[in-house]
Design a protein around this nucleic acid. Structure first.
Lengths: 107, 107
DNA sequence: TTTATATATTGCAATATTACGATAATAATT
DNA sequence: AATTATTATCGTAATATTGCAATATATAAA
C-alpha cells in the first residue's frame, strides 16, 4: 500500500496528474514566479529569495525539470534557469483541454 | 522536517499549489472525467469503474470536495456527486492567470 | 424493526515527499 | 595547484499520502 496504482489509469490521466502534482507545491510555484520576474535566474538567488535550504531548492528545481518546464544552462560558475516557454504553453493547453473537456457534459 | 513550510509563501502561492496538488493524482483526474461523462454520478459506480476500494474512492472524493470542485447531493440511498461548474470555471481561470502572468516576462 | 445498500470514517501498513546538513562535483579565480 | 563559489547528490528524519479492511452511519426496502 501507499503506492499510487498508475497501471489502472490511462496514460493521459497519469501525465496530466503528474503535471498537476509537480505544480502542487508552493515552493515550485514561487520558483516559477520568481524566475519569470527576473527574466533569468541563478539558483543561489532563489535560496535567498525563498526561505529554503540550497539542497531543498535544488530538489524542487529537479522536479520542475522533470516535466520539461525548466531549462538549466551553465553560465560560468552558476546555472541560469529559464522557463521553457514552448513547454509552458504546451502544458497550459493540456490543462485547458482537460478543464474544457471535463466540464462540457457536466450535470 | 518533512512539513511544507506554508508560512514562507504568499497566500496566492499556497492556494494555487493546493489546487494543483488536489488535481495531482490520477484517480482524482479519472473521477472528474467520469463524473463529467455521466452527467451525474454515484460513488459506487466509481468503485466499479476505477479499480480502487470504496474507502479509497471516498477519500479522493473528500479531497475534491475540499477545494469546492465537487458537490454531493443525497439522492435516496446513494449520493449524487456533481462538478461545481462555477468553481470549476473559477479554478480554470485561476490557473490560466498563473500561466499567463508567469510566462509573460520570461527570458 | 430487520435487512440490504451506499457512503463515510477509523486504524493501520507501505510508500512518497519535504527538508536539511554534509559532502561531492564543477568551474572560475588566484 | 589551491581556493572559492555554485549547484547537485546522498543520507536521514519527520511528516504526508495512498490504499485497504473493518466498522460506523444513513437511508430504503421488506
Amino acid at each position: 500500500m501507499g503506492v499510487t496504482k498508475n497501471q489502472i489509469f490511462t496514460q493521459e490521466q497519469n501525465e496530466l496528474s503528474k503535471v498537476f502534482k509537480v505544480l502542487g507545491h508552493p515552493a515550485r510555484v514561487a520558483i516559477l514566479q520568481y524566475i519569470s520576474k527576473q527574466n533569468a535566474c541563478i539558483c543561489n538567488d532563489l535560496v535567498n529569495e525563498i526561505g529554503l535550504a540550497q539542497a531543498t531548492i535544488s530538489q524542487h528545481l529537479k522536479e520542475l525539470k522533470s516535466i520539461g518546464l525548466l531549462d538549466g544552462e551553465v553560465e560560468g560558475k552558476s546555472i541560469c534557469y529559464c522557463i521553457n516557454v514552448k513547454k509552458w504553453e504546451q502544458l497550459q493547453q493540456l490543462l485547458n483541454s482537460f478543464f474544457n473537456q471535463t466540464r462540457i457534459n457536466c450535470c
